[in-house]
Write a protein that binds this DNA or RNA. Structure first.
Lengths: 160, 160
DNA sequence: ATTAGTAATGAAAACCATTTTCATTAAGGA
DNA sequence: TCCTTAATGAAAATGGTTTTCATTACTAAT
């Protein structure tokens, strides 16, 4: 029954189907977390999510948030991001209500993060080719990529 | 005397000059760490470095390693990397003995990391343009970028 | 050289996001 | 309903990194 567990179970329907199809149980806590993720703008930390879930579902603990995010991440339903501030951030990946594909611009001074989708077409095109080339050269099955630009945002740049 | 401190002090010569010019003192410990970094192949964690430095300089503590890496990172002499294994990794950035520009291919199953420089030219070209475009559109002064591909290496892919 | 000021250091303690433990609860198929 | 086992919460543990603080050692000025 759990032969489809783990990160091999990707692609397919959405939420309920995806969960159940992979042998995971769809619980109240998990739905609450998924709900928050789909309603909020990206870049939420585990604690952010816990805070937002807690008022409505006081019996969903931080531990469950972490565990659920781990599952979602393995299923490819959520991206786990690192902006260098010492805590992981999560955002819903694609899907009906999911955000469009985008990359990040991170201010190294104040930590501000800007999502951008400009120039994305060229990037994606290049990424696709690079993935193909790298995949065959190094025998790597590429499933994901990460692109981030670092620098100073306008405010921090002005402060100098 | 410390008006040139911080991440504003970039560009220029190498090691001694760079350090002194920025108001930092070039101490034995710092040289030892820099030495290890330049001699070793990339991806060293703070503890890796500590282990390599310790035999020759037993009085250089792990704290100093962290502090030095932080300084080097701020000076732009070292890249601080995150491959998702819970500890930061460091590698020397450019310079006479520094490695060529490359990006990373990370196996999400075993953690193996491959440096690649293939396709780098096209990537760099695109990056330059994207940086220019993003910089002006969002008023961001871009100083750095991160590109990583994630997937399964040949061994882990075969194990499935 | 001597001194004064301050950067750098090591050891130990503190931090803190994340994980693990373990006893309890609750999905969901039979 | 019953039964198996996944899921859960609370508390404790983990472990990389940072802080604290008293000490050391550069560096410049005297």
């Amino acid at each position: 029954m759990n032969m489809m567990r783990g990160n091999r179970c990707r692609g397919g329907g959405w939420w309920h189907g995806k969960f159940r199809g992979c042998g995971y149980r769809l619980t109240t806590g998990r739905e609450a977390i998924l709900d928050i993720l789909s309603k909020s703008e990206g870049h939420l930390s585990a604690e952010d999510i816990y805070m937002k879930v807690h008022p409505k579902y006081p019996n969903v603990g931080l531990t469950t948030v972490y565990r659920t995010l781990d599952v979602l991440s393995n299923l490819g339903m959520v991206y786990k991001l690192d902006f260098g501030d010492g805590r992981a951030r999560y955002e819903l990946a694609g899907g009906p209500k999911g955000a469009h594909h985008h990359h990040h611009l991170v201010c190294t001074a104040c930590g501000k993060v800007i999502d951008y989708a400009d120039f994305i077409d060229d990037e994606v095109e290049l990424l696709r080719e690079t993935e193909k080339g790298l995949g065959s050269k190094y025998n790597f099955k590429i499933t994901n990529h990460l692109i981030q630009f670092y620098g100073l945002c306008d405010k921090c740049n002005a402060k100098k």
